[in-house]
Every structure is written in C-alpha cells, then in structure tokens.
Design a binder for these strands. Sequence first.
DNA 1: AGCTATAAATAATC
DNA 2: GATTATTTATAGCT
Lengths: 216, 216
Amino acid sequence: MEEERETSSMTCVTSKDPFQIPNEAVSKPKKEPTTTTSTTKTPKTTRGRQKIEIKEIIEESKRQVTFSKRRRGLFKKSAELSVLTGAKIAVITFSRCNRIYRFGHVDALIDKYLRNSPVKLEGCSGNNVAEEESKRPWWERPVESVPEEELEDYIAALSVLRENLGKKIIAMSNDRPVEIVPAWPINMMGWKPTMDMQNMENPTDGITRCRVGQNG
Amino acid sequence: MEEERETSSMTCVTSKDPFQIPNEAVSKPKKEPTTTTSTTKTPKTTRGRQKIEIKEIIEESKRQVTFSKRRRGLFKKSAELSVLTGAKIAVITFSRCNRIYRFGHVDALIDKYLRNSPVKLEGCSGNNVAEEESKRPWWERPVESVPEEELEDYIAALSVLRENLGKKIIAMSNDRPVEIVPAWPINMMGWKPTMDMQNMENPTDGITRCRVGQNG
DNA sequence: AGCTATAAATAATC
DNA sequence: GATTATTTATAGCT
C-alpha cells in the first residue's frame, strides 16, 4: 500500500484539487449540478479515497466501518482467488470482541491442516486423477463433485470424519453445529451460487460479547 | 469485481484507446519514447490491467502467476485488516496441488476456533482489560505482548497448550513442527517486522507433490 | 447504507 | 521479476 512507488498514473486529471490546504477546514462545494458556473473545474464533492497509514484505528466507529468494509473485501478477494486458481481457502477472523467471521471450507480445511493433508479436496490437474478418483472413498472426492442436494449429508458425514481427529475434538465440537461455509458465497457473474454472503458473514459464535459499540 | 455497476468514473480520459478493436490482434505500439510524433496521443506500451472474468484460469502458467500475485495480495490485505482493526486473522490456502500457504496466527486461531474461544488473544478495548490481563495466565495474554526473544518459548509453550485439545491432535502433530507465522510479516511503514514474508509464504507441508509445473 | 474521487491491486507485457 | 495502464478497493462524506 505504501510502497516507495510514486508513479503518478491518472495524469489526465487537470483540475486543481480544491481540498489542498487544511485537512478538515475545507469548505465543501456541496453538490450543485447545474446552477453554478461549473464549466472550468469539476466541483468535487468528496476528496475520494484518502491515503491512510496502516496502524491501529483508534476511533471506535471508524474502526468498525473499516473492519466491515475491509473484511468484505478480503472475503471477496479470497473467493476470487479460489475460483481463478482452484485453490481451497479458509479465512478465520476474530474481531477485537472475539466475534468470529469465517470464509470458505473452514472446517474441512482445518481438518486437512491438522491432519497434514489426508482430506483430499481436489486432485491436481493433469495427474490423471480421474481414474484414481473412483477408487477413493466419498470423503476424499472433490467437494465440487458433491451434489447440492447431498450437501447436508456431506456435512453430516464430515462431522463423522472429524471423529478421526480424536474424541476430544468431537466432544468440544458437540455444542457447536458443524457446518461448512460454501466457497462460492457471492452470487457474481459466472459463480456457483449456493448460499448468500450475508449468512457467511454473520458471526456464528456463542462467544462472550463486548459492550455495545465495540468493533466486531 | 463484476457487479452490475457500470458507473464510469474516470470520465477525464480523453485519449482514444489504441487497443480497441480485437482482443488479441492488436498491433502493439512498442515503447518508443522520443522517436515518433508522440505529441497527439500517449503511445501506450501495454494495455495495462485488463478486466477478466472470475472463472477458473485454464492456462497453467497464467494460473500460477495469478495464484502467486493474488495470494500475496490477499495476505497483505489480511495483514492490513489485522493492524487497522486489531482483528486476529488466519488464512489457510491449499493450492491445487495441496501445497499449503498460511498467514497469521493459524495454529492459535485454529485452537481458538475449535475450542470456541478459550485462547484469548486480545481483550476488547474499553473493557478495562488491562487490570484483568495481569491475572491471566501467560497463554491468555495478548500475543503482541510476547517479546520477540521469547517467541520460540512461546511457540513451544503453545504446543503444550495444544495438549488441551486432545492427545490425538498432539499425536498427529508430532511429525509436523508446530510453528506460528507472525501476524506482521511485511516490513511496511509503521509495521512491526518480525520475520520476512518469504518465510511465511513458503509451503510448509510435507505433502505429496504434484508433477513439476503444477499450480501451487 | 450509498456516493465519489482517489489509492491500491493487478493483467498484460517486457 | 519489473513496468504500465487499467480495474478494483475503499476513505471520507452524507
């Protein structure tokens, strides 16, 4: 974000920036579409996106807004990377108040991560996986091959698979519903829409809440 | 990325786009800084960033490049979100060849996630956590408060904490070094540089590799 | 929650 | 791996 690069693209902008002098004491031009002699310069209504330092945002409301916007952006980027490259991605976000926001096949990938890869979600292309695929048990088949109708069963089955991780995990997971957030949550062009993003974004924990007005 | 929004900002661009007609059959002007009559239009050397559809990239090398670039971008965004809002973030990426790339306090957050929040990384601001902090055992203290010199000990201690997750997990994790990827990997302005990003990005698995030339 | 102008990410290219 | 021109993300307002 704040690399040393100072290449000014956008050389086309010829209008003088009306927001130049102090930071806050700017007399905003107020959008007036047709009244004034608005032929010389474009009467900008906002300063647009401003450069910020990457350091903790102190102001409460501001931090919440940034958290919300950027988390959305992060999940979108994750989804795009997943679709574009076929990678499996899981993102876990704990807000300052320990509200949890998840993206992707979190549970499946955590299993995979902890077990050091046994849950094979997708074969490597060009590895003539197709023939080997049929020999594999259901839970090693690509997630994509699971029909949407069977998703519930698949999820349930996955929770059974989790037993292989150890009784202790199962015990701890029992009071939390085992669910999978689809990797294709956003209904965008060319995407496989299974559930809406809202559902994915809502905090799903039963975790101690902070007082009202806290970030997260 | 490909929402229905078609709002054309950038209305300032007056130069005609020389790359207009077919998509690939463009006669590239080739960068010639001072020779040609480059006064009328800017002799663009590239088409710049092109709009792409969010669908699987078929071409192998192209997909690899995109995976590399966008993964880097995703981790950067994660780091920024973490610093800006104080959120704890973990990102796990399995490439198509099951190479694993991680970001953030993956192990700690997985523990937290599986246990439904016991590992308290940071208190909620304004909750007068400071006084309660001192009562907490070391492993509940904010990760940031751990001095860099103690990081190794902290990591080791965390692996002990994992035992609370169950003997089975420990058994499975034994042949994999338990490590923590720092949440501040990029040495950017105002950042806390602990390790380099390269180290973080390198695949850390001992997982079956695909044939050479595969994505991930 | 929506808008606008600008900062930042990145597709194509070298 | 570096550059460039463009698309996309988003900071500040409303």
